[in-house]
Design a protein around this nucleic acid. Structure first.
Length: 460
RNA sequence: GGCGCGUUGGCGGAGAAGUUACGCAGAGGUCUGCAAAACCUUUUAGACGGGUGCGAGUCCCGUACGCGCCUCCA
């Protein structure tokens, strides 16, 4: 399998640290609002990677975190914690907010047939919540303090990036070339040694005086900085080095760079051998983001009458490393494409499957070449033969489109098809059209072919 | 200022130095009770300027434009 590694900027042959096994970590959502379909694209990408690795025969240990503390917002809510801001906005407790939106995330993920992480079980199921790893995060800060990579100011514990010679190796950007405070709303602590030093632990003083989520630490009461949780969770669940770390391209320069700094400074080991980053989903040519409020959610998509699977197919139609532009027109095309794939899958109930006729090795090969799902879909489209159940199951394992579990029609529905055929033989066109209308009501479309009628389910 | 990505036909979107991507949509035809399908034919490409090749969407160098990141983001 070939994968594009951000560390080397090359598409490389993937070799796991331990033969046959893959440790995979994904930065999960911050649960302060509904996920946008842009967020969901990245989780579908992640899922595609997981599925490809599994089909390739690897035993995949997958961990995903849920950020329920410490993620700072900006803009008008300057300097606040996203969770705290959400709670204030909705007059709810921070816990209520995180539970509610985590639940919304789980529903979306299920609707899109995204596999749940499988390498961790905790109080909240298979997802690793940041607040369930507070002790581990404090211990990580402790290590960094002990090794002199971190220092304390009146407002926070910071990581001193000048102690690492290769800080920024992931983004390839030199520190001296970075514009300081590129975003105007960045709050700057004058006690910081370097402008790019980032907080490991915030004290509940000053602007965070009223922060509700707080824990005792050896240095003072407070809460963890955002980057800390991923390093601590990886250390506690998978152990370094992990094979693959995934996330959006926006994380390269800061979040992932800081994760690497924390882990490699504290433990002296490489955090991850491969870094895979997905490009953003655009809407009207602009990045879809919560702060710009130009986003859609899965609820919006469903509300307009589209199935989640159509959205999944839309994501798979573009390569994960290209920016994709979302429009309703494109979703319409994906919806029709999905219907055609389903009609193809439905053939298995009607024509005698010819084993080996549908060769999906080219499609599999495309996915194994840096997850080229658009090419894989093109390879599948060349097949009009009736697919076997085995073939459909393999396609589902790779693409998760639910093509293999489509039910047969009922005997009543079969009866209607037979009656329609009888009517047609009698040249009773009114009767035949009547039966077709009845079938259409049940969501079944009929196409007459030389070898007899072929049905397909329009929905579900 | 720095780092990164991109520019392909009506829309989406791949591969790739020398014959069709593919999907969705459009046109004409065969077929057909009708509809659809199928089959045949067909329209619309490769930002711009140079360079290297017998030959370039495909490699190299520029230019332009777009997008992202540089302590909110997937």
């Amino acid at each position: 399998m070939k994968l594009h590694n951000t560390l080397t900027r090359q598409t490389e042959e993937f070799k796991p640290h331990e033969a046959g096994k893959v440790k995979l970590y994904t930065c999960g959502p911050t649960v302060y609002d509904y996920p946008t379909i842009g967020n969901l694209r990245s989780f579908v990408f992640d899922d595609t990677l997981r599925r490809a690795l599994q089909v390739a025969g690897y035993e995949v240990a997958h961990v995903m975190n849920i950020t329920d503390v410490g993620h700072l917002v900006s803009d008008e809510d300057e300097g606040e914690d996203k969770l705290e801001a959400g709670a204030g906005r909705e007059q709810k407790s921070v816990k209520e907010i995180s539970q509610r939106y985590a639940q919304a995330f789980f529903e979306d993920v299920k609707a899109l047939n995204i596999l749940a992480p499988n390498a961790y079980r905790g109080p909240h199921g298979s997802y690793a919540y940041a607040t369930d790893f507070i002790d581990e995060q404090i211990e990580l800060v402790n290590q960094l303090m002990g090794k002199d990579y971190a220092y304390k100011t009146a407002s926070a514990i910071y990581f001193d990036i000048s102690k690492l010679s290769d800080y920024g190796k992931l983004s390839g950007q030199k520190l001296s070339d970075k514009e300081v405070a590129a975003r105007s709303e960045v709050v700057n602590d004058p006690a910081k040694r370097n402008p790019q030093d980032f907080a490991l632990w915030f004290f509940t003083v000053g602007r965070f005086k009223n922060h509700t989520l707080r824990w005792r630490s050896p240095w003072g009461e407070g809460f963890p900085g955002w980057h800390l949780e991923c390093s601590a969770i990886v250390h506690a669940t998978l152990g370094e080095p992990i094979d693959i770390h995934t996330g959006g391209v926006d994380h390269i320069g800061t979040h992932h760079t800081n994760e690497i700094a924390q882990t490699e400074a504290a433990f002296g080991v490489k955090l991850a051998n491969y870094w895979l980053h997905n490009e953003h989903l655009m809407v009207d040519g602009q990045k879809m983001s919560k702060s710009k409020r130009n986003f859609y959610t899965l609820k919006d998509v469903i509300g307009k009458g589209y199935e989640p699977m159509a959205l999944r197919l839309l994501f798979l139609q573009s390569h994960y490393r290209t920016q994709a532009n979302f429009t309703w027109e494109v979703l319409d095309a994906a919806k029709d494409h999905l219907q055609n794939l389903r009609a193809w899958a439905d053939l298995k109930h009607q024509q005698k499957p010819v084993v080996g006729l549908v060769d999906i090795r080219p499609a599999k090969g495309a996915i194994f070449t840096d997850l080229n799902t658009p090419k894989a879909l093109a390879e599948l489209a060349s097949h009009k033969e009736s697919p076997s159940q085995e073939v459909l199951e393999l396609i589902d394992k790779l693409l998760g489109l639910h093509l293999a579990d489509r039910p047969n029609i009922t005997s009543d529905e079969k009866e209607l098809i037979i009656k329609r055929e009888e009517a047609r033989e009698q040249k009773d066109w009114t009767g035949a059209d009547n039966y077709r209308a009845q079938l259409a009501k049940k969501g079944i479309d009929i196409k007459d072919t030389e070898t007899g009628p072929i049905w397909s389910r329009i929905s579900s």
